[in-house]
């Protein structure tokens, strides 16, 4: 058999068929490009309601918890008699930590957004069209990282700043000690919280890519971020605890999301590096898995 493309070589052509049928007119089509894939992921993210919902819910959790904690800390709301640290916040983390109380729950919500970014594609089967349009596969993961970061980080920066100022306003209204954004370490803690939440979303994306199931990936994220820091105290031999526990994602992050340094914790820079590793290494593993496994 010849390898010619000409329709004349077509076997089984019916008698009514002209043997010189022209090649169909073809649209000019451009190659797959990184920018195109990023745009594609942006369209996907903005075109489903759950993205907006989870993003607003995360910001809402930050604001609501921050306002509540500030109201309690300032005495605007009734508190147990011995609550409150030396500078007014429940839990004693200071006025900045008080108003950032939402960062205990917000990672779960934003983490789910990160997970869903990829697991919804596996759940609905769209992953197959996605990967036939971008057979290199890795640009898809890269574009999801870019879009998730570009959307989550600014929203979280705005949310944490708004939470900080609202919280300080409430604390001040009740004559509790307040913090100014210019105080040492305060801006770092506020923006660090935004970065932490963005990082958790990316960790969710990595876990979702590795596990391909929403339930499995959310469970893994909850275990890693919420359960292990507490459970580790029971599960690990005492001699290991300090070394291991401070390196878990949420504990590493707390070194740069809080103003006050806890003894035994990592330095802000050290914590940032460890937390970054918790984001980058799972993403690299996800990239390898995405490349090697069948879709």
């Amino acid at each position: 058999m010849s390898t010619t493309l000409a329709p004349t070589a077509t076997p089984g052509a019916g008698p009514g068929r002209t043997s010189t049928a022209p090649e169909h007119a073809r649209h000019a089509s451009r190659a797959v490009s990184a920018a195109g894939v990023v745009r594609s992921e942006w369209i996907k993210l903005r075109s489903v309601r759950s993205s907006t919902t989870t993003l607003l819910a995360t910001a809402g959790v930050m604001l609501l918890f921050g306002a509540l904690a500030a109201a309690v800390g300032s005495g605007l709301l009734a508190t147990p008699p011995d609550a409150g640290g030396p500078d007014g916040g429940p839990g004693g983390g200071g006025p900045t930590a008080t108003v950032l109380a939402g960062s205990l729950l917000a990672p779960l919500v934003i983490g789910v957004l990160g997970v869903l970014t990829i697991t919804s594609e596996y759940a609905t089967g769209t992953i197959r069209s996605t990967m036939t349009f971008v057979p290199g596969r890795l640009p898809v993961l890269g574009a999801k990282v870019v879009v998730l970061t570009a959307v989550v980080l600014p929203v979280m920066v705005v949310a944490t700043l708004a939470t900080f100022f609202l919280g300080q306003l409430l604390l001040g209204a009740g004559d509790a000690p307040t913090a100014a954004i210019g105080d040492p370490g305060v801006l770092r803690a506020v923006l660090g919280t935004a970065a932490y939440l963005t990082g958790v979303a990316l960790l969710g994306l990595a876990l979702g890519t590795l596990l391909r199931s929403t339930a499995a990936a959310v469970s893994a994220l909850v275990a890693l971020v919420f359960l292990l820091p507490g459970l580790g105290g029971f599960l690990l031999p005492a001699s290991w605890q300090e070394d291991v526990l401070v390196h878990l994602p949420s504990n590493a992050a707390s070194s740069f999301t809080s103003v006050a340094q806890v003894p035994g914790a990592l330095s802000p820079t050290g914590g940032a590096l460890v937390f970054a590793a918790w984001v980058v290494i799972p993403l690299l593993l996800a990239a390898v898995a995405l490349r090697r496994r069948a879709v």
Binding site: H27, S29, R30, A31, V32, S33, G36, V37, R39, S40, E41, I43, K44, S47, T126, S129, T130, F133, V134
Partner: peptide, 12 residues
Amino acid sequence: DHLLALAATHRI
């Protein structure tokens, strides 16, 4: 939107 997202990859 489904098709627009797919099309964007090739700048269609």
